[in-house]
Each structure stands twice: as C-alpha cells, then as structure tokens.
Design a protein around this nucleic acid. Structure first.
Lengths: 147, 147
DNA sequence: CTAATACCTAGAGTTATATCGAGGTCAAGC
DNA sequence: GCTTGACCTCGATATAACTCTAGGTATTAG
C-alpha cells in the first residue's frame, strides 16, 4: 500500500503545495519517486511525516525539523543528537504551555469583569480613571479622538 | 508618572520598532503625544498594552487585536462584543493548550525510545522495516541516498 | 487517438510580523 | 550656540511559511 501526494495531503490536512514545499526544504528526503517522477509515500513515510507535523505544530522551525530529519536519515549513530534536540524542544513546549496557561488566566480575569452585572459600571470607572490620569499629565483624552 | 517608548520597550520586552509598528497598525490609538510629537505613555496605557501583549502572546492576529482595542475605545457600549471576542479567543487558547499537550505526549514517546538502553536496536529495526517496505514497493532505500 | 486528470518543476507572489535606514526635530548639558 | 541623544516619520527590506502560475509529462477512460 502506497500513497499519492493527494492522499498524504488529506491525511495530514496539509495542502499539496505545502508538501511539495516541505520536500523542497529538505524535510522529505526519504520519499521515493516512481519512474514517472511522482512521489510515492509508504506507511513508514507517513510515520515520519507524522513526527514532522508534530514538531511543526509545536512551533519548531522548518530548519530545525530538517536537522532532525537529517539525523534520522543518518541512522542509529545519531540517537544522542536526536535526543538532545527533542529534549530541548520538549522544554520549549512546556514553556509554551505554561505561558498559554498564564495568559489564559489573564483572559479569564477580563471575562469575569465583562460577565459581571456591574460590567458597565466598572468600565465607566476605568474610563474616568484613564481620563483623569491623562488630564493630570496634560494629555488629551484618547476617547474623544475616536471618530 | 509617564513612560517613554524606550521604557515601554523594556517593560514589555518589545523593540522600539515593534511598538511604533503596533501604533502604525492602530493598536495604540490611546497613546498621547507631547508638543514635540513624542509618545507619552501613562499607567493606564501600560495596562492596555499588557492586555495587547497577552492577546499577541496567545496567537491573536494584530487585526483582531485592533478590533478589540477599537471596542475598548468606544466605551461601555461595546462590552458584549468584547466579551464574545475574548470568549472565542479563550476557546482557541484551550485548543492550543490541548494540542500542545497531545504533541508533548508524542515527543515524550519518542524520547522514551531514545532514552532506552535498546535505542540503537529499536532504531536499527525501524530502518530494516523501512527498507523492506520500500523494497516491497519497488522503491529505492532512502538511506543510501544520503551523502 | 484524444481528452481529462493528477502529477511534476521552477520560480514568482502573498501574508503577517517585524526590523531597519535616511533624514529630520527637540531638549539638555557643556 | 553646538553637540548629543532620544525621539519622530516614511518607506524599504527581511523573514518564515506558505500559495500560486505557467508550462510540461505520464496514466487512464472513452
């Protein structure tokens, strides 16, 4: 069982363009061609592409992914560098999750205000505060500036 | 107490260029200028910029952030649209966290293999499998292709 | 045999987000 | 009064990651 570029595009929800672009960028050196020059994907290819998508979806740059793929293509001697590359990336993912979680809290705080029955009052009070602060510093109100 | 663009850049770890860029993009309509035409930031300005950074750091596009800022500048009448904008964004953040967490698991699975004492054997077996599959489909081995 | 279809390459174009350079203004210190 | 430093605008440039166009080839259905 093999797959065409279209199959792969559908499986991974990528455009055909993107797959060819990844190939151009050296992310798919393992994909073979038939006599007509078309890409032929095997199950093992899909397995590695799944990893590539995982790295991409967690924000790894294409250059870094190519690094990883190159290690994979060099065989069992590159296990150590692969490991440290993934460990570093793992740390980045953890930082990203941590960061998103913190920002989620901030969004939730704002939503709490907006959901409160006193929302309008709170907002009006904030506006008063902003205008007072601007005035105290000899600056124009920003609200008037809106058309 | 007011802040210069340099102060703000340091506080939020943005470049001065980026702050001017955000202003150009309509993200900072509330920032006033002094007679010399320089931006003067107040505490309230910092408060809103903090929100802008929160939205930016969670992947909201600048256009969408401008939407939110515009609502804020229109006063208490826009609480409902602000709320739904943030609710939608909150859902996106949750999806992103979920996605990162899943991909983290995948990375951890790979790391488990690489950390195992049998890592080399496992990898060699995978290579054999790939080569067998390629051969079965009349395709060349991708490992030979590496220079 | 011919037309449709799915694929190919090379290179141009797009988008979002920044970053920079040139040339100018203003306030402070010497 | 002159220099320095921090700021300004406008428009060009950069970068990553696609996305598309033009022109061409192999396979398949009628």
């Amino acid at each position: 069982m093999t797959y065409s570029i279209k199959d792969v595009a559908e499986i991974f929800n990528l455009s055909i363009y993107t797959i060819r672009f990844y190939d151009k960028e050296g992310l798919l050196p393992f994909v073979s061609r038939n006599k007509a020059g078309r890409r032929v994907f095997t199950e093992s290819d899909l397995y590695l592409i799944r990893t590539i998508c995982c790295l991409k979806d967690t924000g790894m740059e294409i250059k870094a992914i190519r690094n990883y793929v190159d290690f994979v293509m060099q065989g069992a001697d590159t296990i150590d560098p692969r490991k440290s590359l993934l460990l570093e990336h793992r740390a980045k993912i953890l930082r990203d999750i941590e960061n998103l979680t913190q920002n989620l809290n901030q969004v939730d705080s704002k939503l709490e205000i907006y959901a409160s029955p006193k929302a309008a009052d709170i907002v009006k009070e904030q506006i008063r505060f902003v205008e007072e602060e601007k005035r105290a510093n000899g600056l124009p109100s920003p609200y008037a500036a809106q058309k």
